[in-house]
Design a protein around this nucleic acid. Structure first.
Length: 383
DNA sequence: TCTGGGGTCCTAGGACCC
DNA sequence: TCTGGGGTCCTAGGACCC
């Protein structure tokens, strides 16, 4: 495998910037990747419609009740100053800031705000936009002055939506993504091959997008603790530890190398799922079956809206206190609600009868459209 | 101290086929 | 009686992201 290979799942847009490579130097402005990331997005949307809360510690999560089992979606900067952040249980957040303002998650409001932001980005001249989530996107541009382009984007987003964003500028997708953190809030930062190791080299591997606690620990066992060490590592031991794709991919992450092509192919969901955490753990079989039936009903409604057949069903169960299992299986005769439900109930039968269930998730996988199957569907790891 | 909900992708290992 | 390689498909589980 070559040095700049990336995981290629068949749908991975991993091409280098071939157009730029073929272009004689100076004939066109160089291509840049901008990573646009909204600042405290969910909290910011809430503050726009509740200006009286500006300046207060605001915590959005769950149903807004800090006595329930739920976690923080986003905390305002005032709340972050007290050590409250995304993923923290609301109960812990309430202990840290007893008089914080707790608000429920309002997904439709964030989707509407996000749509406005993405429309603003697409309206930028020459911009190719790849949406990564509610609050972030890559923007591909050809320009001699990427910083000016980034300022223009920040001003346009603020003018149209009232929301502030930070922009990472890079010569690859990976470098642009990593640059954003250094620009927060409301700023810009540029990472290229020239300054990548100066800026990132001494940081821990977990600072990289795609390297979490587990992988960074396994890397440390190989003697690799910093980004610079990962960039200089041999691929053989990495492949032996993480497999033929992920091993070399981690080294490439350490180098910041890879694709510079922003891909605006529309997103095609692989499936839909619903899950629920029970406020009180479930032990009764009938309760579990009933919960599964309710969840699959919601999932099938989501799937029906897309008009694509179900080709797989899955179930996720979290036992108290905290072990999670995933069960999946394929469905041959793609089909009706009765078939899917019957297959689901077969999986429910595999749930341990003698363990309390804290979370139940149900998933339906959908057939991919022919034009997205082997070709060009953006993937999360596609860079 | 208590751990959401919605996603994607990768790997290992077994079953099965030629 | 012992057991090749190559391949695909499926399940179970792990890891990570926003």
């Amino acid at each position: 495998m070559s040095d700049d290979a990336v995981p290629s799942s068949g749908s991975t847009p991993a091409e280098p910037d071939a157009e730029a490579a073929a272009d004689p130097a100076g004939a066109k402005p160089p291509g840049w990747v901008l990573h646009v990331d909204l600042d405290q997005f969910i909290a910011a949307v809430e503050l726009l419609r509740r200006p009286e809360l500006v300046g207060l510690p605001v915590i959005v999560g769950g149903r807004g009740d800090p006595t329930e089992r739920a976690v923080v979606s986003t905390a305002s900067y005032e709340a972050r100053a007290f050590g409250v952040g995304s993923g923290m249980p609301l109960k812990i957040a309430a202990r840290k800031i007893p008089d914080a303002v707790f608000l429920p998650v309002d997904a439709p409001a964030y989707t509407a705000a996000s749509d406005e932001v993405m429309a603003t980005l697409r309206a930028q001249p020459g911009a190719v936009v790849q949406v990564l989530g509610w609050d972030e996107a890559f923007v591909g541009l050809r320009t001699a002055d990427p910083d000016a382009a980034a300022r223009g984007i920040q001003a346009a987003v603020l003018a149209r939506t009232g929301l502030h964003c930070s922009v990472g500028i890079g010569d690859t997708l990976i470098r642009a993504k990593n640059a954003t953190d250094f620009g927060k809030p409301q700023g810009r930062f540029r990472l290229t091959a020239d300054n990548w190791l100066d800026v990132m080299g001494a940081r821990p591997t977990a600072a990289l997008w795609g390297v979490g606690a587990k992988v960074s620990k396994r890397l440390a066992a190989l003697g690799i603790t910093t980004v610079a060490e990962l960039a200089a590592a041999d691929t053989a031991p990495l492949a032996a530890e993480f497999g033929p794709k992920m091993g070399p991919w981690y080294r490439q992450l350490g180098r910041g190398d890879g694709s510079a092509t922003v891909d605006d192919t529309p997103w095609v969901a692989r499936g839909h799922s619903r899950e629920t955490t029970f406020q009180t753990d479930l032990t009764d079989r009938a309760d579990i079956v009933e919960a599964a039936r309710a969840l699959i009903g919601q999932v099938l409604a989501d799937v029906a809206a897309e008009g694509r057949p179900v080709v797989g069903v899955g179930i996720k169960v979290r036992y108290a206190p905290f072990t999670t299992k995933n069960l999946v299986h394929k469905i041959d005769e793609t089909g009706d609600e009765a078939t899917v439900t019957a297959e689901l109930l077969r999986l429910v039968d595999k749930i341990d009868a003698d363990r309390a269930v804290r979370l139940l998730g149900v998933r339906a996988e959908m057939a991919m459209p022919a034009d997205a199957r082997d070709g060009h569907t953006p993937t999360r790891g596609g860079w």
